[in-house]
Structures are given as C-alpha cells and as structure tokens.
Design a protein around this nucleic acid. Structure first.
Lengths: 343, 343
DNA sequence: GTGAAAGCGCTAACAT
DNA sequence: ATGTTAGCGCTTTCAC
C-alpha cells in the first residue's frame, strides 16, 4: 500500500515530474501525446495528488470555509450541500465553522482556525454576512470572502442574495387576495437583515392594498418555535385579532399552529398561518404550511463559484447576484372567514 | 501581512527551529525557560503553524472525514457538531462526506476524496456503518475507522453505539403500562441496523407482556414522512386497528399524526403515537411527540476521541462503547381508550 | 514543449 | 536539553 507520488508517475511515463505537474494543473504547452502518456500512467498507478504538498508548494490550501450559525435547521443543511458539491467538483474541500454570533470570542476563534487552516476563501451566511467587525477582519487578512443573503446595503464584499422583501411582498399580496384585511406579521431575529426585508415587503403590500397597519400586528420574534408561540399568544388574545398571521419563518409558524390549535381555532378556516423558508417541518406539520421557498442550494453553489473565480483571478469581482424566491401554497391558508367581512 | 513561519519564531526566540517544533507538539525535553521564551515569541509575532506543512512533513493530515447520508435531519446536524467540536479542540479539521448509500459510485467517489485529502481517519454513520464493501475498502487502505450506531455483530471495526433495542423495549413497555394491547410498529429503512434493533425491542416487550403480535401490526417504513403516512393509512384502515402506533422515527410519527387527524382521530385520546430520535420537529408538531432521545452529540464526541487516540497510538483499540437512550414523554401518548377494554 | 534545481514550512532521524 | 541535516510531494523559476 505504498503511496504513489509524482515521481513514480514521472518514472512510469518517462517524463520529468514538472510535466506531470503541468498535466495535473491543466497548463498549456503540453503536447497531446505526452498528455495521454501521463494520463495512462495516472490510471496504471492509481495516482492521487497529495493536497497538502500542492498546498505547501503553491501557497494555496484548496480549502474553503463556511461560517454559519450553529442551529439545527434545514437552511444550514442546504447551504452545506450546495457549497460542498461545488467545492468537490472544483477540487476544493469545505471546512465548516458553526459559530455563535453572539460570542465574544467569535473573532479569536475564527482567526485561529482560519489562519492555521490557511483557507483560500470564506463563505459567510446570515447573520455573519452583516457583521462589520468580521468583514473588516477578513478584509485586513486579505481572505477572499463572499456573503450569502446579507444586507444589500453593504457593498464592500461581494454577495449572493435572494430578494426577501419581494417574496414577503408576494406572500402578503396573496393573503390580501384571499380577502384578509387583518394581517399580522411575526418578525425574525433582529440581527438578521432578512428580518427587516421581510417586514418591508409586508408594509409595502399592506400600504398598496390600502390596509392600515396596526402596531399590535407587528410582533418581534426570534426565528425559534417558542418565540412563535409567544407572539401567537399575544396576537390571538387581541380584541381585534388577525385572521391571517405571516411568520418570518416556518418554525415560528409551527408555533402559531400549536397555540391556535390549543385555543380551538381551526387552521385554515378560522385562521390562516403562513411561514417562510420551506423547511421540511413545513410539510410535516398538520396542516402543512404555505411558505416561501428560497433557492438556497443554488445560492450556495453560486457563492462558491464566485469565490473560486475570485481566488484564481484575484481580486474578486465585487458584485451582488440576486436570486428569486417562490411562493408555495399548501394547506394552512384559506380565504378570510366571512365574519370578518361583517365586522 | 507577511506570513510568520517557524524560522521567524526561532530567530526571535534565539533557538533552533527544532525546539520551536518541540514546543508546538508538546514534546518532552524542553526546559521550562525555553518553553516560556518560545511561547512569548509566538505571541509577539502572532505565529500560527501551517497545517499543510505539518501534514506534509509528519505524514499526517490532521483531517478527519465524516461520512453520512445526505438527508436534512437533525441526526446529521448533531453528529456534525459533536464531531466538529472534538476535532477543533484536538487540532483537527473535519471534512464532511454526505453520500448516497445506494449510489454505484460510492466507493469511487469516496476513494478520490479520501486518498487525496489524505484523511487521518474516518467516522462512519448509519447506514454506512454496516456497509461491508466500504469497511473492507477502508481496512485495505489502512484508514483508521470508527463506526457510529451500526450493527453490533460487526466486530472488525470499533464502534460507538446506543442500545436501540433496549430503548425500543422501554418505549413499548411504556405503551403497555398505559393499557394498550393493540400496539403497532412502523419499522425504519431496512438498510439501517437500528431498524431491526427497534423491531427486536418491540417484539420482546410484546412477548413479555403476553400480547400477540399480528403481522398486520408490523409495517415497513423508510424513515420518511411519506412512508409514515402510507403505513398509517394501512394501519388505521385495519378492522382491528391499533390504539397505539410506535414509529421508528419522528418524521414517520408526524406522518401518522397527519393521517390520523385527517381521519378525525384525536391524538392522544383516540390514538397514541410515538416516535424515535427526538428530532426538533417532534416538538414543533401538535401534539408534540413522545419519543426516544439518543445521546448523539456525545456519541460523536466519543467516536472522534477514540479515533484520535487510535491515530496517535495506532492501532485502534477494537471495542464497542455503548450509550443509553432516554424516553421522553410528551403529548402524543395517553392511556388506551376504554372502548378497547370492552372489545 | 520539456526539464533541473530550488524551496514551500514543517518534522524525522540522528546528532551533540 | 538542544541543534543539524535531510526530506515530505509538490510547484516555482528559469533554463534549454
């Protein structure tokens, strides 16, 4: 089981190891004949280039870091698989960095890992996409970075982004089209730019529909199931309770479903509930949730592509690529109850 | 922003670079004075050892691979975070390999990755823990391997394991203690050893309670929400329908809840439903699920510990470490309906 | 179009 | 307890 090195291949193919290296890296100036000879030698010996050696010699690590909030949710899973597939296809490995965005040691933690792993580049997901100190740190260290789904106002670092304000606007227009007039929103965690975008879409749709927005109808959630429950309790005990509640993610929507069911409200007949994210749970709960699907995997793929292009050409092209979200209608939404039209 | 190397540190501390290396690797035979001097130099220069260089020189990569089925579930997330934390604490990086266990290219795919990344060791999760060809392949390549939660009968590779048969037995005893006599089980995917273990526990509990096991009451599921729905439809249209259904995971249990609700059965009054895994969704659905909690994070931690010990001492201690699962009672289970005692 | 020599940053083996 | 030398497997530089 001896290791096969570039020297073995060179001997076998009867050329110098520099030529092997050229073939390996798809460099120009290799005659087709030699190329074939070398490739045959690869196959014959079962040669696999040693990443660490390439890394050391070329001052590249072929490692890409993915920083995300350490939550057990489908967003992270999809980001991971999207990013990973692209990495593997392009000969990179992905190192994952689940981090606590509220930790004081975030930067220190990351630095130790980042520097000694020698990452070629980094992908930031929310809420890290918008952390100024982190962005500054990465700029200082000259580590190529792509942000996923962060604040579009920040233009110092290229980003891949889906238009949440737009999606939220569409969701609310859909609710309006069902005849709802008393529409409430549960916001997401305030540290996430997406939370504010989603609120914006809601506000625009309400204004356009000529519906007043009550302060009571805007509740601050934190993306957790429990925060959804809490906000739902407040909303459903209002005198003038909403007939539709738009939660900024599916876990909070699930919390609403639970509270409503406990209060003997039937969904969607008495109350329409909608979510955001198209989490697996949105299909598993009863009734299944009307929600918004983001092209998460595709966004991660594009982020890695941009990053690798940037690493090769340096510097990064500083631009924002926008993806479009999609409304998915399921069982948790229905026309507003008639009683609502009477009042 | 020039890179700080071991040579810079050596110069700064006024010692040879071998001494720096010794301090770095916690080797013996370094005087306390020198150690302090070197450590000061580390701090002064902000030195971070280059992993790739260490890897190349020491023929170790400080990389550990984690192979798992590419599903968006909480099991994978918890395995990841448990393994990752241990890795980082011990100076290793984790490379993730989400794979399709039914793919024909599995071995080829893995091989390319494994060999060129030069992994120091591998953690296998179900159903890969039990794939003979894969285990043989890893043995041939002499890649240290630990299996998580696989078949205990396989003793060629060390493993970390939780006693699912026992947990399943306890779950069924609990159902019996609630007065249920018509208890059905929905099995998990047949490629997972755990599915068979969970069936075993069910059978033992039923036998001990003197309850007959009807063939109809054992349904083959595949761990998916949809398979849970399908099995539930069959079970609930039985003449002699069960008053309790034990699903081998929470997603299938969620499928039962959906079908039962559609049939106007109230859970848990008309039907008790229980799951397995303590997935987040088990709390998010209504009613929340009685389930089994496995110490997944701890198992992953232990697996990495064993692996690293093995890498350092080689060879691996070939043993199986067993963890204990825990019954979590929530809202989806209740005493058997009275009508059942009459029939 | 191809090759020889040097060196990436570190550790191994063998000094002293 | 510390230093010297060689070399890990590859790419870079500069030859030809």
């Amino acid at each position: 089981m001896k290791k096969v090195t570039i020297n073995d291949v060179a001997k076998h193919a009867g050329v110098s190891k520099k030529t092997i290296s050229r073939v390996l890296n798809n460099e120009l100036n290799v005659s087709p004949d030699t190329k074939v000879k070398v490739q045959n030698a690869f196959d014959a010996l079962g040669y696999r280039p040693n990443q660490q050696a390439r890394a050391l010699a070329s001052n590249q690590s072929f490692l890409i870091g993915l920083v995300y909030a350490n939550l057990y949710n489908s967003f992270v899973s999809k980001i991971q698989s999207g990013a990973l597939e692209r990495c593997k296809a392009d000969g990179y490995n992905l190192i994952i960095y689940p981090e606590d965005h509220e930790s004081d040691y975030l930067l220190t933690n990351l630095e130790r890992g980042l520097i000694s792993a020698n990452l070629d580049g980094i992908i930031l997901t929310p809420p890290f996409s918008d952390m100024k100190p982190l962005l500054d740190f990465l700029t200082t260290k000259r580590i190529p970075t792509i942000r996923i789904g962060g604040d579009v106002q920040i233009t110092t670092t290229p980003s891949v982004y889906s238009n949440d304000a737009e999606a939220s606007y569409e969701m609310c227009r859909y609710l309006v089209s069902l005849g709802h007039t008393n529409i409430a929103i549960i916001m997401g965690h305030p540290d996430h730019a997406a939370s504010h975008e989603r609120l914006l879409g809601y506000q625009r749709a309400m204004e356009e529909a000529g519906l007043p927005i009550q302060d009571d109808y805007i509740q601050q959630g934190y993306f957790s199931f429990e925060s959804g429950e809490n906000c739902a309790r407040k909303l459903l005990s209002l005198n003038n309770r909403p007939t539709a509640i738009f939660a900024s993610n599916d876990y909070m929507a699930a919390g609403i479903v639970k509270v409503a069911t406990q209060k003997n409200l039937s969904i969607p007949n008495d109350l329409t509930v909608t979510g955001f994210d198209n989490a697996p749970a949105s299909r598993y709960i009863w009734p299944s949730l009307t929600t918004i699907k983001q092209p998460i995997t595709e966004m991660a793929d594009e982020a890695v592509r941009m990053l690798i292009r940037g690493i090769r050409n340096k510097p990064l092209e500083n631009r924002t690529i926008t993806f479009k979200d999609e409304l998915i209608v399921r069982e948790s939404s229905a026309p507003a109850p008639k009683i609502n039209f009477i009042t």
